[in-house]
């Protein structure tokens, strides 16, 4: 039988889940069982969850070979027939990782606007001045609401002591 690129991907992902299930069951052997263990020790649920994953992923693979491929859901915003836009995804991932790396040293008020701008790029915004403006205004409002009004801790970074 012939597999489309999409069902090959489904197959690969299901295979990965199957491998995860096997891994979970094998790793369960390394979980120490305390001497005063109850009827259901710490290995029972790992065996159950891993076993269920193996069964379900295996069943999905069998379904795929019998032609039961599932198309990704369409929505008003996404179109599964579009080619995978690697550039945009890379910008998105870079924005998120950049946020995580910069948050503690530089503070929320630097990390969030940079991330927001990157995300706007990743989702295809074009007007630079509007992007820059919103990227600064929105995180500041969020900061004021969460950190100053609700008292949730957000790193101040370079602004420490100033705000």
């Amino acid at each position: 039988m012939k597999l489309t690129a999409h069902s090959k991907g489904e197959l690969a992902f299901s295979g990965l889940l199957l491998a995860l299930g096997i891994f979970v069951v094998i790793e369960a052997a390394l979980i120490p069982i305390p001497l005063a263990s109850s009827n259901v020790g710490p290995r029972f649920m790992p065996h159950f969850a891993g076993g269920l994953l193996i069964l379900a992923a295996g069943w999905t693979i069998i379904e795929l070979f019998r032609g039961h491929s599932v198309a990704p859901e369409e929505s008003e915003l996404t179109d599964p027939t579009q080619r995978f836009n690697a550039v945009r995804v890379a910008i998105l991932l870079a924005s998120v990782i950049g946020f995580a790396v910069l948050l503690d040293p530089l503070g929320y008020l630097i990390a969030a606007p940079l991330a927001f701008f990157g995300l706007l790029l990743a989702f295809g915004a074009r007007r630079w001045w509007a992007m820059a403006l919103v990227s600064i205004v929105l995180p500041v409002l969020v900061y004021l609401f969460f950190a100053k009004t609700l008292g949730i801790y957000l790193p101040e970074g370079v602004f420490a002591g100033i705000l």
């Binding site: 979980i31 109850s38 790992p46 969850a49 379900a56």
Partner: peptide, 24 residues
Amino acid sequence: ARGFAAVAVGLVIGLIGFDSQSGV
């Protein structure tokens, strides 16, 4: 099959960390 695979992945994620009873 896919629904149960999703439940199982959720169970696996839920396992990560200290076991509440045995502490391992």
